[in-house]
Each structure stands twice: as structure tokens, then as C-alpha cells.
Amino acid sequence: MLNVEHLQAFYGNAQALEDISFTVNEGEIVCLIGNNGAGKSTTLMSISGIIKQKQGTIQFNGEDISQLPAHKIVSKGIIQVPEGRRIFPTLTVEENLKIGGFLKGKISKARLEEIYSIFPRLKERRKQLGGSLSGGEQQMLAIGRAMIGEPKLLMLDEPSLGLAPQIIDMIFDSIIALRKSGMTILLIEQNAELALDVSDRAYVVELGKCVLSGECEVLRNDQQIQSIYLGQHEQESVV
């Protein structure tokens, strides 16, 4: 479905991505793992067309989208929930959701109700301003806002960021539910364990390059992965 080959990206003079290649097939959850600063978010921003200085190919359903402007990429069905959620603070919850379906025209009450049924908390707060929500509620709103645009590929950047464990559980339960409903998802997580748990396949990104890839089951047992990305746990278990 999504096929990225030899993607390079730049911020001014500085090269942020050196060589990123990966594929996402329909119905899969694929995750990118790696340290902070490895280039995961830059990869998503390049796919979404926010970063324009880039080389390499990005194909979506066989079509090259690497030169399209951001809003055209959304209209192809690629929607991103960016790092830090980026809720519109002066718009109400409901207005935030409506903007999510901007390209779908007028959003029906029924469609809003569908989202509210997944995240009932949002219905309680629908008249509140986005900026007044707690972190967990903002994450629900961010995912809901992306869902209402009926994405073919949903890209989630660090959905666990800054959330309490029980909220993280809730968010990840909803991700699993989405996958069951047939959604294709590209996930970025700094919490490698968590990411490997929910995903089918994973790519390891280091210093702007894809260095390793494979089935999550296999990667979880990989010595190298364990020592670098799950190392904290290993140390824990030793103690």
C-alpha cells in the first residue's frame, strides 16, 4: 500500500534522513522504532508532505506522492496524528472533529456519534475548548479527529507520549480495535516493547537510516534489539 524507497530529507543544510526504505501492506500495523532524534517523526512529516526538501520515492497504492502538497496527500487517504497531538486550542472539541473531516464536506451527526461511541469522554466535553483538555483526552481527540477523515492509512506518532499507564492501555486498546476493523496503521513509538506488542512488522531506524526490519515476533527475540531498545528491561530483569 505504502512503499518508501531511499527517502532522504533535509532541514536547510542539515540532512535529517539519509536512507529510509520500508513498505506497509494493507491491513497491517507496521511500526518504526528507534531512539529520539533517529528521524522517525521526520519520516512521517516527509510522507505527509510537510517537509518538502526530500529525495527518493514515496508510493501510495502505486502512485508517486512525493511531490504532492500536504492537503493532496490527505485527500489520497493518508492521515497523520502528529507527535504532541496538536489539538487546535481555540476550537471546541466538536469543531476539532469537524476539521478532521474537512475534505469530507459536511459532517453528519451520525458520523460524530460514531466517534463519540469510541471515545465517550469526548462527547461529555464536546463544547469545551481543545486547549482545556487533559493529555489523555487530547490524544483521544487527535485519533478521533483523524478517524473522521476516513483514512486508508493512519499514521500515529508517539501516541503514548506523556500519558499515564492506564490511559496508554486505553489508547492502545483502541489501536488494536482499529486494526481489527481493517485499518492500516503506521506507528511510531519510543516504547519499543509496546510497539512490538501491537504491530505485525517493525523497522529499526537509526541516525536517519533503516538498519533492521522483520516480524515483530522475530525482532523481539533478536539479541541486538534487546540490548539496544529493550535494554532497559533486560537490566531490570537482571536486578
Binding site: I50, H71, Q80, P89
Partner: peptide, 11 residues
Amino acid sequence: DDRIMSQLLGV
């Protein structure tokens, strides 16, 4: 509010 997020939603 957010000139990048609006683009990410197709505006």
C-alpha cells in the same frame, strides 16, 4: 491555531 496541523487534515 496551527498552520501545520491544518495541512495534515487536508486544509
